[in-house]
Design a binder for these strands. Structure first.
Lengths: 151, 151
DNA sequence: GCCAATGTTTACGTCAACGTCAAGTCCCGG
DNA sequence: CCGGGACTTGACGTTGACGTAAACATTGGC
């Protein structure tokens, strides 16, 4: 793992991600994001991977509108999958491995479906907006015509 | 306006939209959705247009994640535009009309940009999901291979 | 005209996701 | 080694979007 580097202070991480330090502490409290390390005195020190994880959380929150509990479930599932691949996963049967993978695939499909649905609705919404814009432009044109006549 | 028909009771509207009656009263309190009419005794009676408006509100809330204040701003702008087109808009100068239309177009563009951004992020997200799915499937295949060897 | 279902207003409760002190501790450039 | 800024752990406050309960009024089918 290239010697657990965790150089970033909470304030810097917060600023980079566009949130406050309170948010980071809150996410830690919920078990969503624990800093990879600490300073000698006990201050939080975040790794690059932590930052990536944070951005992931914010993406799920902002783009998908998931609540933090659901985000926790998703991240936990992925974490277990990652752990499964690396060391310390010897005592796990092939059957159990398959179960976990199947579970992950199911969750993945569920999310894909939700994203697809959202995409469809958003595209329809965009269509509405464009239609309305056209109407507005036409009305502006009418105004111009009237003005031209009135001149 | 084809004789203001407002036949729907609050409970029916709520059920159709998948919300509670409390939500409808709350939206009225915020000035988002006032029923088109009332029964002799004072019960709310909603029109078909009201239902459409409600669905619009819910779409903006669920799909775009806007808060109810912002939704109010959007709906108000549209309402003023609609009013502008119909009767009782005589005392409004061409200049003012043009201003309002320009404002509406600006708001429209703003929202289009937001939707575009959301679409882009969602598509990227979907790509990630598909990629992960492929990885999962590969790992399942590896498991199968191991199992075949182990047999 | 009755009465169960549905509606009305008023008001307090709740829950997530933080915001905001307070009172102390840590970090690090000069 | 020292001082101002950043960080720590509590703890309580806030805000949006409703939920819920009480006490009473309306509605509409029989």
């Amino acid at each position: 793992m290239s010697a657990g580097e965790a150089p970033y202070r909470i304030g810097d991480v917060a600023q980079r991600a566009g949130v406050t330090t309170r948010t980071l502490r809150y996410y830690q409290e919920l078990g969503l994001l624990a800093p990879a390390g600490a300073s000698p005195g006990g201050s939080r020190r975040y790794s690059e991977a932590d930052v990536v994880r944070l951005l992931r959380i914010l993406e799920l929150r902002n783009v998908m509108g998931f609540d933090l509990d659901k985000i926790g479930v998703i991240l936990n599932a992925e974490d277990r999958l990652t752990a499964l691949r690396h060391e310390a996963a010897r005592g796990i049967s092939t059957k159990r491995r398959r179960e976990m993978l199947d579970e992950a695939v199911a969750l993945n499909h569920q999310m894909q479906a939700q994203v697809q649905e959202r995409l469809a609705v958003l595209e329809a919404f965009l269509g509405d907006l464009e239609e309305k814009e056209a109407v507005y432009r036409e009305r502006v044109a009418e105004l111009g015509a009237v003005k031209a006549v009135g001149r």
